[in-house]
Deep mutational scan, measured.
Amino acid sequence: MALNTPQITPTKKITVRAIGEELPRGDYQRCPQCDMLFSLPEINSHQSAYCPRCQAKIRDGRDWSLTRLAAMAFTMLLLMPFAWGEPLLHIWLLGIRIDANVMQGIWQMTKQGDAITGSMVFFCVIGAPLILVTSIAYLWFGNRLGMNLRPVLLMLERLKEWVMLDIYLVGIGVASIKVQDYAHIQAGVGLFSFVALVILTTVTLSHLNVEELWERFYPQRPATRRDEKLRVCLGCHFTGYPDQRGRCPRCHIPLRLRRRHSLQKCWAALLASIVLLLPANLLPISIIYLNGGRQEDTILSGIMSLASSNIAVAGIVFIASILVPFTKVIVMFTLLLSIHFKCQQGLRTRILLLRMVTWIGRWSMLDLFVISLTMSLINRDQILAFTMGPAAFYFGAAVILTILAVEWLDSRLLWDAHESGNARFDD
């Protein structure tokens, strides 16, 4: 018995066209964080690309023209004298008006014999932002004059995390709450300039795509075929072959399989920071003279006294001054041990922890910024005066060393310790 099946006739004509040209192939790229070699397709503007294995951002879609970056830099340069030299806060102490600005706080630190601690604050609040705007201006002028731009481009990517104007702005709020127990506070004209400078700096850093600047100024022929001998440069993120001198053909720094002496430098910085954190938390970090009496505060006791007036601000200072430094030390110690013992479990967790400490590390400088600003506000000789204690130097040095330890660690070593050939990683 035959089955009668109805015929289905399409209502619209289906047209099949042959592909007349070869589909576009992607360029081969190595991930600078996990060293995976993959094919990167062509990316349009405002599109980002991520590593298929570790999800690290390979290409950032946010990109401004150099002219727009230069305009932002010149605007920031105009704001800087007002943000640093004009009063941020006014207080009335014992019937006398006192003005506080950024430069005055750094000068008070240096004047009291601790120039190293003052230079830490100076670099993060004044030096690094000033280098940022002058570097962008150098790129703008240098591109037109045919100057060598490689050193500036190499420095810009590392400079971003040292620009800490946003953290200093939080420190202004913390210092205001600490001082309000002794005097009446009012915002100064410099505060508005400083807030504007923070906003412009944040926007500029978020749109400063150094890798795209490398592509514009020093374009290189990408690798179009897969080759395990391809290496990625950690300076400019170019994937290719080393030249005859073993250097990256684009930025001219040595092109090595792994960062040289990464573990040794990381261990040295980490152990030194552990040693410095002990006096930083045991010795007094601030000293207040009130009517001839002397009151010393460690980091913890200062947080407890701050909690009596504002528990939320005390929580912020606790996280930045105690929780973050010790968390960074514990995480980095764990990561280094996992590399030495070739741990194969929990790779995803370790990668996330490394990215976390990379982002939060700079916030530990908050305590030094609060001390710097408070020193310029309260300084009335023996009637009422505020000065920093010996722990300030140890704390600042420990924070900087932990930042350097994270920067010096080559994250690809975590993958080397893991089993080879993993296309995915999980716990």
Results as ranks from 00 to 15, higher is better:
Val16Ala: 08
Arg424Gly: 11
Cys51Gly: 09
Phe369Asp: 07
His261Cys: 11
Met109Ser: 10
Gln244Arg: 13
Gln345Thr: 13
Val121Asp: 08
Gly421Val: 03
Asp99Gln: 09
Leu354Tyr: 09
Leu377Val: 07
Leu300Ile: 11
Leu306Phe: 02
Glu215Asp: 14
Ser305Gln: 10
Glu86Thr: 03
Leu40Tyr: 07
Ile330Pro: 01
Met375Asp: 00
Arg68His: 03
Phe238His: 12
Phe141Ala: 09
Leu156Ile: 12
Ala392Trp: 02
Ala56Ile: 09
Leu169Phe: 11
Ile43His: 08
Val189Leu: 13
Ile8Gln: 10
Val331Ala: 15
Met72Glu: 06
Cys236Phe: 00
Ile378Trp: 01
Glu42Met: 05
Cys54Arg: 00
Pro325Tyr: 00
Thr402Cys: 04
Ala392Cys: 05
Asp60Lys: 07
Arg150Ile: 07
Pro10Asn: 07
Lys160His: 09
Ala49Cys: 05
Pro219Trp: 13
Lys178Ala: 00
Ile167Arg: 03
Asn148Asp: 04
Pro87Asn: 05
Phe82Arg: 05
Leu306Cys: 02
Ala397Ser: 13
Gly20Pro: 05
Phe74Ser: 10
Ser48Cys: 09
Ile319Asn: 13
Asn422Phe: 10
Cys34Ile: 00
Ala423Ile: 15
Cys343Ser: 13
Val16Arg: 10
His184Asp: 11
Leu23Asp: 08
Ser39Arg: 08
Met147His: 03
Leu290Lys: 01
Arg144Met: 14
Ala137Asp: 03
Arg424Val: 10
Gly315Ser: 14
Arg355Asp: 13
Asp297Lys: 04
Ile58Ser: 13
Glu161Tyr: 09
Pro219Glu: 13
Leu290Glu: 00
Arg260Leu: 06
Arg225Val: 13
Ser321Pro: 00
Ile98Thr: 02
Val357Ser: 03
Leu401Trp: 07
His207Lys: 09
Gly146Asn: 05
Leu154Val: 05
Pro222Tyr: 13
Gln55Cys: 10
Gln220Ala: 11
Leu23Val: 08
Gln344Trp: 13
Ile316Gly: 11
Lys342Pro: 11
Gln29Thr: 05
Cys54Phe: 00
Leu88Ile: 04
Trp359Thr: 15
Gly113Lys: 14
Ala83Cys: 03
Leu205Lys: 14
Ala18Leu: 07
Phe194Asn: 12
Asn291Cys: 13
Gly118Ala: 14
Leu282Gly: 12
Arg144Tyr: 14
Trp92Leu: 02
Gly361Asn: 00
Tyr218Ser: 12
Gly171Val: 08
Glu157Cys: 14
Leu66Gln: 04
Leu263Asp: 09
Ala70Ile: 15
Ser262Leu: 03
Met365Lys: 09
Ala187Leu: 11
Leu3Asp: 11
Asn310Ala: 10
Ile43Pro: 03
Arg144Ala: 13
Val210Ser: 15
Ser135Thr: 02
Ser206Phe: 15
Ile43Val: 05
Leu159Gly: 02
Pro129Ile: 11
Leu169Trp: 03
Glu42Lys: 07
Met36Gly: 09
Ala280Asn: 03
Phe38Glu: 04
Ile43Glu: 09
Gly346Phe: 15
Leu282Val: 12
Leu197Phe: 09
Ile19Lys: 08
Leu37Tyr: 07
Ile98Gly: 02
Arg355Trp: 15
Arg259Val: 10
Ala137Gln: 07
Ala269Ser: 12
Leu401Asn: 11
Cys233Pro: 00
Phe74Asn: 04
Leu23Thr: 08
Gly396Asp: 02
Thr204Ile: 05
Ala18Gln: 09
Ile96Tyr: 04
Arg30Glu: 02
Tyr168Ala: 09
Leu290Ser: 02
Gly173Lys: 01
Ile116Leu: 12
Arg226Met: 13
Leu368Cys: 07
Arg256Ser: 14
Met388Gly: 06
Cys251Thr: 00
Arg97Glu: 03
Cys34His: 00
Arg350Asp: 08
Leu149Ile: 09
Ser376Trp: 02
Gln112Asp: 07
Val174Met: 14
Arg259Glu: 15
Val324Ile: 10
Tyr394Asp: 11
Leu130Pro: 12
Val179Phe: 01
Phe425His: 11
Gly171Pro: 00
Leu401Tyr: 05
Pro219Val: 14
Ala307Tyr: 12
Ile126Gly: 10
Val324Arg: 00
Ile199Pro: 11
Pro284Asp: 12
Ser65Ile: 02
Met155Ser: 07
Phe122Met: 12
Phe333Ile: 14
Arg348Cys: 11
Ala307Glu: 12
Ala280Asp: 02
Phe326Asp: 05
Met356Pro: 04
Glu211Lys: 15
Arg355His: 14
Ile91Leu: 03
Pro222Arg: 13
Phe192His: 10
Gly105Cys: 03
Ile400Pro: 02
Val133Glu: 02
Leu89Ser: 12
Thr224Phe: 13
Cys251Leu: 00
Tyr50Met: 05
Val198Cys: 13
Met164Pro: 01
Val313Ile: 13
Met164Leu: 03
Ala405Pro: 02
Leu413Pro: 06
Gly61Thr: 10
Gly292Ala: 13
Gly315Val: 14
Tyr394Phe: 07
Pro6Glu: 07
Asp114Asn: 05
Arg68Ser: 02
Thr134Phe: 14
Tyr50Phe: 12
Ala128Asn: 01
Asn148Arg: 05
Cys31Gly: 00
Ile285Trp: 00
Lys342Thr: 11
Gly293Arg: 14
Pro151Asp: 04
